[in-house]
Design a protein around this nucleic acid. Structure first.
Lengths: 319, 319
DNA sequence: CCTAGTGAACAACCATTGGTTGTGGAGAAC
DNA sequence: GTTCTCCACAACCAATGGTTGTTCACTAGG
């Protein structure tokens, strides 16, 4: 693959051979083997060198992608400066936005972003060293964090109501939580038992709302389509959630007030984790911190207070 | 890589060896070699089999991605049923939306989507067989299409004005083209000489608009940020263009009327191309066809009339 | 038309890789 | 303790992938 790619760049077997520090004959044999395996001709041999065939042109981007994937794979376990492994709830959520900002501020730091099931899985992964950090709401529904895992609130994200154009509240500049009682709020795809589910359980219990988590989760696109087309349905969405926005849906984001439910994103990490990029990430997040528990906002009572980096007692088991 | 992946699935060297039809010792040697190359331990050997180490867990998704990339690479040149190679203007444009719909309707058909420079490159690629089809506006700025390339209008996409919340026209339910004169419209990233650029040149000339294509193109995100923050700036955007929509920007899409500029997307292909999926794509697009040249709309005068599949004369060279 | 030069392919050869079989060792189950 | 399971190591061998030497096809120049 690398040989193929280099030939495509240089246009000659010869030059590719010197680039790769092998003989021209070796390059020729490699290409012949690749063409035999694929069953197609990749280059047309000319007196001036080699040109890509049609199939070669189609194959080239795939070959490059393969090489990049191999590079990433090797980098993921490279000792010394392996990428920082960070868990987020969703690829479009606020945590991803924070990571994007961090990446812009520190382009040299490689990130390995993954999505675990819930905070329990995240804590286990942090303690085992499988991941370096996680963006989660602590500490429901499980026990308090173990002592060797630290956490800090990094972002309080107000929730908004997402409605279609035909919804009764679509025209409102904002709505109060009380006004939401009786409206159908639909949130498919919530993982039962996750801290995310616990958050909405508390919200429902505290304000008498109706949240339907039923039905299969066909992904963000299908959710938005349904919300847009169904006047009786709305959904909650973090203020920083990035949507793929096709025009014509007429989707509206309506701020919620009195109080404003905010989702408490915390960064979790292992106290003994020596990864240098972890310290950089914590410093960065401290610089982007938002006010916590601002007046007029609501968070579950299990949310870790902002000023405490970790609880001072061990948990005794899952509740 | 495949061996590593299979072991991770089965949890045992033995079973992986059976799956791969090699001896257990061969599997052991492969893993040892991979671990030696990477410099890390990937499995902890237990009496019951093998478990992934922390590094192994991090490496696994990359390994799977590498295998998928290899599969796609091989498929891209597979004779018999290689993927249909289709060129689009942008990964977020209307053509991509059409292809997504096609993929939903025919999940079994593999697509290879790529983005060429302009219609000239697309036509060359079609004639050489490098690609099977292209979504473009024909036939500016070059010559008419050669006889062996066919085309059909598949979508007339109305343009909308995209503004920030502070823009003078942000609150308007719609604007007329005449009202746009004097407003600064910013479209960075237009490739000079492309049919896309020719379209806007004609639009500017026809209605006395001011379109600035200056400045570096830092991508869609940066464009949206600037539009949102700059009351004096707006941009054109196809009605079907999908944006990544971060809340809080307050971006508005304002329909343009009197006339509505529509972008004429055509499908281009080679008359002699025998790829079966090409016929399927054409049939699908015919079923999703939109009305052409509807009253009150505007297209450049060089746009190929909807009813003609291809011009009846050859071009004489680039103008 | 002949000659010289360039670039890829073929042939012969050889070190290394990657497979095989046979065997050994460590932990769990009985 | 015995036995079973599962992985690692050793010895061996075919095949891969590299090398050098040479040939072939085409172009350019006189």
């Amino acid at each position: 693959m690398r040989t193929f790619s280099v030939i495509a760049e240089t246009g000659q077997f010869q030059k590719a051979a010197v680039d790769l520090s092998v003989s021209q004959q070796a390059v020729s044999k490699r290409v012949a083997a690749l063409e035999r395996d694929l069953g197609v001709r990749l280059f047309t041999r000319t007196p001036h060198g080699a040109e890509l065939t049609i199939d070669g042109q189609a194959f080239l981007p795939h070959a490059r992608e393969l090489l990049r994937a191999a590079e990433r794979a090797a980098a993921s376990v490279r000792i010394g400066h392996r990428p920082l492994r960070v868990d987020v709830i969703s690829s479009r959520g606020a945590a991803s936005g924070l990571l994007r900002g961090f990446h812009r501020a520190h382009p040299g730091i490689d990130l390995d972003v993954l999505m675990l099931l819930d905070i329990g899985a995240a804590v286990t992964a942090i303690r085992s060293g499988a991941i370096d950090a996680s963006f989660r709401a602590v500490a429901a529904p499980g026990p308090p964090l173990p002592e060797d895992v630290a956490s800090v609130r990094v972002l309080d994200e107000p929730l908004q109501l997402l409605t279609g154009p035909g919804h009764a509240l679509a025209g409102a500049g904002s709505v109060t939580v009380a006004e939401l009682a009786g409206h159908r709020i639909w949130m498919p795809g919530i993982v039962p038992g996750s801290e995310w589910a616990a958050y909405y359980d508390d919200l429902v219990a505290g304000f008498g709302l109706t949240i339907e988590a039923t039905g299969p989760n066909f992904g963000s696109d299908a959710l938005l389509d349904t919300i847009a087309d169904t006047p009786a349905l709305a959904t909650f969405m973090g203020e920083h959630t990035r949507l793929i926005w096709p025009a014509g849906h007429g989707l509206r984001r309506v701020p919620v007030t009195d109080p404003t439910p905010v989702y408490p994103h915390s960064l979790l990490w292992h106290r003994d984790n020596p990864h240098p990029a972890l310290a950089t990430l914590r410093t960065y997040l401290a610089s982007t911190a938002t006010p916590h528990d601002a007046p007029g906002t609501w968070t579950p009572n299990w949310a870790v207070p902002p000023e405490r980096a970790a609880p001072d007692h061990r948990g005794s088991g899952r509740g």
